[in-house]
Write a protein that binds this DNA or RNA. Structure first.
Lengths: 251, 251
DNA sequence: GATGGATGAATTGTGTACGATAGATGTTTT
DNA sequence: AAAACATCTATCGTACACAATTCATCCATC
């Protein structure tokens, strides 16, 4: 038997406890989600249903549901009869994601400023502190995670659940973009900047906060996506896959 | 005995053709999606898996997949062991949706203006023409559909697929909001306005287009949501469901 | 030696069966 | 008569089994 080392190697909590009902799916989803977003699973990694089912101690049925959900969120790619893989965002997708983030995160700032409370800002300061700690520790994974978390929690001050959910999806996908195209140190170098925007928000300076956010997001995009701007390796495989996807999308 | 509306009464295309493979799910999804968004199925209508499976001539497995997807798009509500129903957006949800639309649709206009072509604008003019025809015919359903389609196609000029997809979801949910809270004639009365924004876009007036869009969306929200601002019927059922949902969401 | 087609294993897609849960109905008790 | 309990039915959640498809390997042919 060809032992293809696809071994997933994640927590695999074999929950035989009283965790009946829907909570189990949620836990499996959470594990896979974290594994992908925190970059424990490289983009492109195959996610065979059997392997996952065995790893989590459930049947393929539950796994399929979770994979479908992750597919809706664009974190995994499901192709007909070919199974699921961790998504590999294209460069265009990456640009669209950051453009969307600029629109949403700048646009939501008016409501954020309007509804911001000292308590809410304190939560953000806590995140910044943890960011600094992770950075000092050299923990790149945690840095990236907290950097994203800051943006989501900031948006949450607007109390618009729909926007927050969408942004959370964009931030998750940003992690995949960083994992796919990012330079080794990108995404975690100049994030001490986060403090600046809090002062602008506390001062009620919507336009200032918007300008800051616009620049901040463009900085991140530059350090991440533009690295791939000059494709060192044309990578025929990826190009053909992209063509195939586009063609399929027309149906 | 209260009349239990379990009869689904949709097209039920019994496709026995060579439609094997994934295309079938897509077709079923499309039918259900259209039935919900075009308001053939009232918000709150139960969607039993067995009934749908029989109606479409497939097993529950496929139906479950479709319902999961619609649930992810917030068009149906799935509660544990209680099945799926056509979603009934809360008033807060409705407000969030329209706030999100203001942010996204105004925010995307810069790219729309930058990338708009005469051909693209012509597509929009065609939609406006069809809107007028539907309105003259008194076809409220088609009017609402085309009104939403206009906004989506307009955003599509930005060529940002991520944003378009999100906005499409918001527009779908707006249809549900209109179906749930809208006055009988709301949403289809003053849409001749759509023409105005095309001129602003063609002239490259981003700020003008943004101001127009902001006002347009606020107008729609006013004619739809504020009707329910003074709840004519407290509707205990809806309130309790809302409480239950909020309680469940804490997990 | 390279190309084309056929065969076999691995993996996914779909249908079906069984256990579990919620809501409804009917009965009993106060 | 109203309320509380038990049972019953309808529906969902999960697991399993079979059919369909893809991919890899091998062989024949040019």
């Amino acid at each position: 038997m060809g032992k293809k080392r696809t071994s997933i190697d994640l927590g695999a909590m074999q929950g035989e406890d009283a965790m009946s009902g829907g909570g189990r799916d949620e836990a499996i989803y959470g594990n896979l989600y974290a594994a992908i977003v925190e970059n424990h699973l490289e983009p492109g990694t195959k996610l065979p249903e059997d392997t996952l089912a065995e790893a989590f101690g459930v049947s393929r049925t539950s796994i399929r549901k979770v994979l479908q959900r992750l597919s809706y969120e664009r974190l995994v790619d499901i192709r007909l009869n070919r199974g699921a893989t961790v998504a590999q965002p294209t460069v265009k997708e990456a640009r669209d994601i950051f453009a969307a983030r600029r629109i949403v995160e700048c646009g939501v700032l008016a409501q954020v400023v309007a509804k911001a409370t000292p308590a809410g800002l304190d939560v953000l300061r806590t995140i910044i502190r943890r960011e600094h700690e992770a950075e000092a520790r050299g923990d790149r994974r945690e840095s990236i995670y907290l950097s994203g978390e800051f943006h989501v929690v900031l948006a949450r001050l607007s109390e618009n659940e729909t926007i927050v959910e969408f942004l959370a999806g964009l931030v998750s996908r940003s992690s995949l973009v960083i994992a796919t195209y990012g330079a080794p140190m990108a995404g975690s170098c100049r994030h001490s900047e986060h403090e600046a925007v809090l002062d602008l928000i506390a001062a009620g300076d919507v336009e200032g906060a918007r300008a800051w956010m616009e620049r901040h997001l463009k900085d991140i995009e530059r350090t991440v996506v533009l690295v791939e701007e000059e494709p060192a390796e044309p990578d025929l495989r990826k190009i053909l896959d992209e063509v195939a996807r586009r063609h399929r999308g027309g149906g």
